[in-house]
């Protein structure tokens, strides 16, 4: 990730850091965690730099502020860009990881990274995700040497968090602006809009880029509720891993089940059956263990 590589002298003095996120709500694109840190003695000057909650600033102003803080040798920063593919995959795992957990891990990851660079962090200000007190305890347990301040609207309360919100927001906007779609189908556009589910441009883009089999391009966070509205236009997909969960049986890989019709052997009768696995039931153990079924009709 981009960040300053040589450690400045001030970093070995007590430092403060702010952490904020951008792109948590949008249905598409990466979620970005950003942090900004400086010597505690610089805190007063920081409040004169006109950092404000990035959402209240115009894009151009944000870009300027980001360029200024990058050029300022008394400030350090880092980002963690979480790819939408990773967000979807984690939230749709067999054992699902929710967005709060992903957020907490990303913030902790930034703290770890900055500590490993040799920065002497003493206080870290974090915009909360979920319950502030629980989050503060979680962070304090992971990093006992640091004092954490976790608050709602930290991005407008603490200039160091405002700065972090600018780092995160500008990085997210640039990532989306420069996004290269994985998919190579024709007629794909990059008019994503902001990515917020309510944005008419985003809605129009989702509408145009839905696909009956594949759903959406991987830029989209499939785990978002917004996507469910489109599922009626899409072919149903039944996952073996969901099935095993419903059965309450183990989800270990050794017990994965296989459907013979996935080899292309489907008849109208089989297709209507909800069973998606071959059971190998009432056959000898060899077949049972391998989920091999005797197929008499095809």
């Amino acid at each position: 990730m981009e960040s300053k590589s040589t450690l400045p002298d001030w970093a070995s003095k007590p430092c403060i850091m702010g952490i904020d996120e951008a792109g948590r709500g949008p249905v598409l694109g990466p979620m970005v965690y950003g942090c900004l840190y400086c010597a505690r003695s610089y805190e007063k000057t920081l409040s004169t730099l006109n950092f404000a909650d990035s959402k209240t600033l115009k894009e151009e102003k944000r870009e300027n502020l980001f360029e200024n803080l990058k050029a300022n040798e008394l400030l350090g920063w880092a980002v963690d860009v979480i790819d939408p593919r990773e967000l979807s995959a984690k939230m749709l795992k067999k054992i699902k990881i929710n967005l709060n957990e992903i957020s907490h891990d990303s913030a902790s990851g930034l703290v770890t990274r900055v500590l490993n660079m040799g920065v002497f962090l003493t206080e870290v200000y974090v915009d909360t995700v979920g319950d502030p007190e629980k989050y503060r305890i979680k962070l304090s347990e992971r990093f006992p040497s640091i004092k954490f301040v976790v608050a709602k609207k930290a991005d407008s309360l603490y200039p160091v968090v405002s700065g972090a919100s600018i780092v995160a927001k500008v990085t997210r906007d640039r990532a989306l602006r420069d996004w290269v779609l994985d998919e190579t189908a024709e007629n794909m556009t990059r008019n994503f809009g902001s990515g917020y589910p309510g944005d008419p441009e985003t809605k129009a883009w989702l509408q145009q880029h839905q696909h009956s089999v594949f759903g959406f391009p991987t830029l989209v966070r499939f785990s978002w509720g917004t996507c469910t509205a489109y599922s009626k236009n899409m072919v149903e997909v039944v996952w073996e891993s969901d099935k095993t969960e419903e059965d309450g049986s183990s989800s270990s890989s050794g017990k994965r089940q296989l459907k013979l019709s996935s080899f292309g052997v489907t008849t109208s009768k089989r297709k209507n059956e909800e069973e998606i696995e071959s059971s190998g039931k009432s056959r000898c153990k060899f077949f049972q263990a391998r989920k091999l079924e005797h197929l008499a009709n095809f």
């Binding site: 189908a185 009956s212 594949f214 997909v237 039944v238 073996e240």
Partner: peptide, 12 residues
Amino acid sequence: LPCCIKYDGPSA
């Protein structure tokens, strides 16, 4: 794939 796609036909 470890899922059943309830569709038979060509796709991109």
